[in-house]
Amino acid sequence: MLTSGIILLEGSLLSPEPGLIFWTALTFVIVLLILKKVAWGPIITALEEREKGIQSSIDTAHKAKDEAEAILRQNRELLAKADAESDKIIREGKEYADKLRTDINEKAQAEAQKMISSAKDEIEQEKRRALQELRNEVADLAVKGAEKIIRTALDADIQKKIVDSMIQDLSTKRN
């Protein structure tokens, strides 16, 4: 189109304007200096602080996670240990109880045995003593009888009476 040709031929598109260059430079430098102080400083500081804050938060979270895992592991170990401990205590208790029971049983049996044997001994002794007494009694009676017989030896009747009376005595005594 002719329009584009005119624009190219115009030439003033590239014409230098020292005034504009001056104003651009001045404006830009002033804006740069003011904004550097007013805006970029605080904004960039805030951004950097936030970045650091986020980084430290992530680090802290990682550390906390590691710590929690360590504690969990420790807890598990402790729990396992406690389990083993309780198992051991129960087992030992059972063993002790078993032992105690058998001991008591044995002791009781021994005691009973001892009592039985001592009772038997006593019975035997009593029996012997009773027999002894009986023997002594019988011997005394025999001696007494003989004495009476000897005293009444002259009379048979008397003797007879004596014997009878003796027997009668015996029978009454026995009763």
Binding site: L35, V38, W40
Partner: peptide
């Protein structure tokens, strides 16, 4: 200047 003074002030 206006926009970034406001923004900078907020920061």
């Amino acid at each position: 200047l206006i926009v970034f003074s406001i923004v900078g002030g907020k920061y």
